[in-house]
């Protein structure tokens, strides 16, 4: 029963009557998904399954046609064809395997702070973030601020058991790889992290972090206050807001050496620190992807070289 089911499945998938409609359907879905974007279509199990079935079908078609390819095109050409199709299948298998294994964290790292993540045998500390922007003389264009940075180096220390283990630099395009784990700073999500210092009428001081990705609501006396920070000429500036009805009302700006008094409270700004978003991930299926890609490409070159060599020797034409 089981074997006959497998035979039927093989016959079905090895048939061009199935392979070609599969290819057409896959192409049509891909075109439609590109022109009318559907969230997560290309990452859906159904799409990946369709890719997998097509890969299997291509391989089975090749196996089914192997005697014909052997007879008409020679042993070396057949070997190349099989290698290429196996490569595609290995690649698809790697993609599907990758969907169920490994881990990926997206974190925000602030200068001087550490990130402790599950799955990681070490702690990441961002020592310093060195940023250099392109200058107008580097780039003759207006929207310089929209370009990636000229230099965007995250100097990190990896700590094991509380002690420094590895010191290294990571940047977009130059990820740090340690024990199969990759640390890649974001190319776009970098900026400044501010501290708001609130001193109450009894001179008690509170330091409140103001992460730009999640600005806090701070209680100052009777008021609920929000802060929006920016760097101005190398100095931090925080604008404070409160909500009155549905409207946001500005309460004033706080700068270095220019605190703001509010209902008996004094609000000042601490030194600004840089932060970067960072992807931390491992990819256990990477060797499978590399093997699949290599097999596919070597198979293509192999097939083409030997096929034409054999054809030339026989004085025959190509496909």
């Amino acid at each position: 029963m089981g074997i006959s089911l497998l035979k039927t499945a093989f016959r079905l998938l090895a048939s061009l009557k199935v392979a070609i409609p599969l290819l057409v359907v896959l192409t049509a879905i891909t075109i439609t998904g590109s022109l009318f974007p559907t969230p997560d279509l290309f990452w859906s199990d159904a799409y990946l399954a369709l890719l997998g079935v097509l890969g299997l079908s291509l391989l089975f078609v090749t196996i089914q046609h192997a005697p014909m390819i052997l007879k008409r095109k020679g042993r070396n050409a057949l070997l190349g064809v099989i290698m290429t199709h196996l490569g595609i299948l290995v690649l698809i298998a790697g993609v599907i395997y990758g969907g169920y294994t490994g881990f990926r964290h997206e974190i925000k790292l602030v200068e001087g702070e550490v990130a402790v993540l599950p799955d990681l045998p070490f702690v990441i500390q961002l020592d310093a973030l060195r940023i250099e922007e392109y200058r107008p003389e580097d780039f003759p264009r207006d929207n310089l601020e929209k370009l990636p940075k000229k230099v965007q180096d995250s100097h990190v220390t990896l700590l094991k058991n509380g002690r420094p283990w590895i010191e290294a630099t990571a940047a977009p395009g130059r990820p740090l790889r340690v024990d199969g784990i990759t640390l890649l700073p974001s190319i776009t999500e970098v900026g400044w992290f501010f501290d708001l210092i609130v001193t109450d009428p009894l001179s008690r001081e509170r330091t409140i972090p103001v992460p730009p990705w999640e600005p806090p609501v701070v209680t100052v006396g009777e008021r609920q206050v929000m802060a929006h920070g920016r760097m101005l000429g190398g100095n931090p500036e925080l604008e404070l807001f409160t909500k009155e009805g549905d409207a946001l009302v500005s309460l004033g700006k706080v700068r270095k050496d220019e605190p703001l008094s509010l209902d008996g409270f004094e609000i000042s700004v601490g030194p600004a620190r840089r932060y970067t978003a960072m992807q931390v991930y491992n990819r256990p299926h990477e060797p499978v992807l590399v093997a699949g890609s290599a097999l596919m490409f070597v198979g293509l070159v192999w097939h083409f070289y030997f096929r034409h060599r054999d054809r030339r020797r026989e004085g025959r034409q190509d496909a």
């Binding site: 290819l23 192409t27 891909t30």
Partner: peptide, 16 residues
Amino acid sequence: ITWLIFMAYLHARYTL
């Protein structure tokens, strides 16, 4: 998509 069409072209020549 372009790669799929190129692939279809080669397969059409080989198998069909």
